[in-house]
Design a protein around this nucleic acid. Structure first.
Lengths: 181, 181
DNA sequence: CCATCCGGAGAACGCTCGTTCTCCACTTCG
DNA sequence: CGAAGTGGAGAACGAGCGTTCTCCGGATGG
């Protein structure tokens, strides 16, 4: 098995397991079992579990923001684009195996003990907020709106994660619509 | 040491440790060391760690909602009361050792593995939402506003927890003010 | 004063898990 | 064909921790 293939398989398995059951309840042996990548190889690719966790969050961050951008870019109208963020949330919340925001969960689990994970979570949230700020600016809306929309989105992620419902996305979108005016 | 005193001391220590460092990185021996309650007694009071965790969340829930209610009730005007929720959040975010919402953190850490904890988190969030709904109704505001305010508050808790800033409370309050109109 | 009980200190047990090591089958190159 | 290297399977090691057990000092009641 090629090195890059092994790496992808390891990350695929790690992502599914870490996201679904939490990082701490998944052992390296579970990752080996789910990926088919031997322990020896796993430790060649990721010298410690924490680095596997970091790689998981990093790859997921790229995918998550990519999908958001692709959903948003389907729309032409700049105001519609802002609201499309909440459409994307709704779609995400409805996906099979959705278990809330991976970064919020990781922060709750590891934020107090791993400064690197905490930093990654902050970076991810900051990137999301910056992206929102760009959409708000492009729509000619006041910059102060960014914070409100961001909080609505974060609240929706938490609530959908805890309740398992997609409804928070619709609630957030309606609030956003009102705020946009 | 009296049984109820030992129980309080154990819970005080557990709360401080679990909230500050996460549940899984705190051992029963740490709780013993911080509380002065012997291991034997700890296990008489709480037959397993999970029950100590449940008791911690339960007692904190009562305190948290009590303090919120007391802050809100300082105001007469029903609309002012709604906004006072965000004042209370701001005050909370500024407290020493603030590390985000204990329930959101616990959900990220244990939600996938402990159904009892997950249930407690849902109950706490539902109670908070119900409380908000009461304030909204008392102020003669449309019931649909409850969801928006709830999401703003949740988003503020997450963001303040991750960033360590009190600013999200002010942002949420401003958005709430706009939505109330 | 002695027997009994209670609770504390902390050793011990068993399990999990991150990490490393051993052994071996297989390939590859001279 | 043989020597050396590669990688896989999984045993082994060591630490951490939830939980239980042992031992002992001191209080209590006859």
């Amino acid at each position: 098995m090629d090195t890059t293939v092994a790496r992808e398989r390891a990350l695929d398995a790690a992502e599914q397991l870490f996201y679904g059951r939490g990082v701490q309840s998944v052992g390296m042996d579970d990752v080996r079992g789910a990926s088919g990548v031997s322990l020896k190889r796993l430790y060649q690719l990721f010298p410690a579990k924490e680095q596997l966790v970091e790689a998981y969050l990093e790859r997921r961050d790229e995918r998550w923001r990519g999908r958001l951008a692709r959903s948003v870019e389907r729309h032409e109208d700049p105001r519609r684009r802002v609201l499309a963020v909440f459409d994307r949330l709704e779609e995400w919340f409805g996906e099979d195996g959705f278990r809330g925001c991976a970064w919020i969960n990781a922060y709750g689990e590891l934020g107090a003990t791993s400064e690197r994970v905490a930093h990654q979570v902050r970076a991810h949230k900051q990137a999301f907020r910056d992206y929102l700020a760009g959409l708000v600016a492009d729509a000619g809306l006041p910059a102060t709106l960014t914070g409100s929309l961001f909080l609505l989105a974060e609240g929706a992620m938490v609530t959908a994660g805890v309740t398992g419902s997609t409804e928070p996305a619709a609630e957030a979108r309606e609030a956003a619509r009102t705020l946009i005016g």
